[in-house]
Design a protein around this nucleic acid. Sequence first.
DNA 1: CGTATAGTTGGATTGTTGTCAAACCTTCCA
DNA 2: TGGAAGGTTTGACAACAATCCAACTATACG
Lengths: 102, 102
Amino acid sequence: MRLLPQPAIEDIQLTEVLHALADPARLEVVVKLATEVELTCRGVGEAIGLHKSTLSHHYRVLRDAGVVSTRQEGRQKFMTLRKGDLDDRFPGLLDSVIGAAG
Amino acid sequence: MRLLPQPAIEDIQLTEVLHALADPARLEVVVKLATEVELTCRGVGEAIGLHKSTLSHHYRVLRDAGVVSTRQEGRQKFMTLRKGDLDDRFPGLLDSVIGAAG
DNA sequence: CGTATAGTTGGATTGTTGTCAAACCTTCCA
DNA sequence: TGGAAGGTTTGACAACAATCCAACTATACG
């Protein structure tokens, strides 16, 4: 039930978010999270076809940028989009990206 | 009055656009273009404080991604945001990015 | 306790990016 | 015709990024 470290809302940087979203694999993760509400890392990465360590790297980029939140429960980690936080900070951005990608 | 080569609307890729916007210098250029309608490369780059060849490189990235359009007139080049094209292809994206950055 | 499961970390590799400097190309103008 | 002005290209370089593999940690289960 532990929450992994993540930037505070006011520390989320636009260029970092854009960079995080500018990778096809990460964008796919985000689109998946937008429809599925919450997923384990395994669940998110299953369809993408990358090595699990590569995916772990992408999850970290997304988390460090403030795009996703990760909660550990037992040996699984559940990720959610920080949609509310992002909407507060950069109104409309996430929706337009997800709309454009999906 | 020559228009420099640029991708067709349907060839504009979301990840490329995001990548183009994910650099602070390029984002500054875009924000400037959003308020000024049209500017020469010199005019855009003046406030940014980078070498002109570096700026030229950034202009190219923006143009290749489909974010800006460049028109040559005499020895100057005027850049404009491809706002209409981007709005058609990725509705709301540009506005939210500019709003967040500006 | 031993083993499987879920993810992370470190190293290696390969490729991309941001930056500058110097040389270059075009166009204008005196 | 010879500069000057406005950009581009090329080369160099350091920093970063995406990927894989192998080794690791931590939790759960039998």
